[in-house]
Design a protein around this nucleic acid. Sequence first.
DNA 1: TTTGTTTATCGTAATATTGCAATATAATAA
DNA 2: TTATTATATTGCAATATTACGATAAACAAA
Lengths: 107, 107
Amino acid sequence: MGASKSESFSVEQNEIATLFKALSHPARIAIVDYLLTVDSCICGDIVNELPLAQPTISQHLKELKNANIIKGTIEGTAICYCINPDTIDKIENHFGMIRHKLKNKCC
Amino acid sequence: MGASKSESFSVEQNEIATLFKALSHPARIAIVDYLLTVDSCICGDIVNELPLAQPTISQHLKELKNANIIKGTIEGTAICYCINPDTIDKIENHFGMIRHKLKNKCC
DNA sequence: TTTGTTTATCGTAATATTGCAATATAATAA
DNA sequence: TTATTATATTGCAATATTACGATAAACAAA
């Protein structure tokens, strides 16, 4: 095989795995890092910042956007991308749940 | 190509991406979920719990272990796997940093 | 209109991941 | 010793991801 058996798992498990997958590549972490250091941001800035070709960065941005980790608004010719705080909340809540359940554990 | 250009990014960016990658598959999320619902845990339990073959689960456990998300201690013939709270801390701290930097943002 | 600027998409090669049957290993029990 | 039990490893096929050149699309400026 090779395809992951996602239908065997719950919707919640697939959703959170999809969020983590979007963050599972150093280029996408670097994009998020960069978005956090600048006030406004356009894709071109990222192309100059990272050692990857423009189509590659566009592809990574698309994956972050599909996962709702960033959102982009059109500003004339450019696109202003920024972090979506709601999705950050969602991931933080997941860890809050883990932390809560860990409290009652031996290890 | 196809190999990710990890050498182009910082050690920190690669480290956090590796943690997220370990959590980027629904089966591994399900394993973490299951470890949080039982007090002690052995691999065989997980094989009975998830709709995947034993070698597949063993492989997923190995990836979680390599990423330090779980740790396993030998208990006779079986292995007792449990969550590593230190790694959960590490990921939570990363989101703490994101949250902190988001505070000073427009969006 | 044409030109330039910015971002997206297509096509494809290289590489990585997923899943499992078969088999191996390690420890215990008989 | 020979089972038995629990987990790991090997090998391979199917699929997914990554990266980028070429090209397209969308829009502004001249």
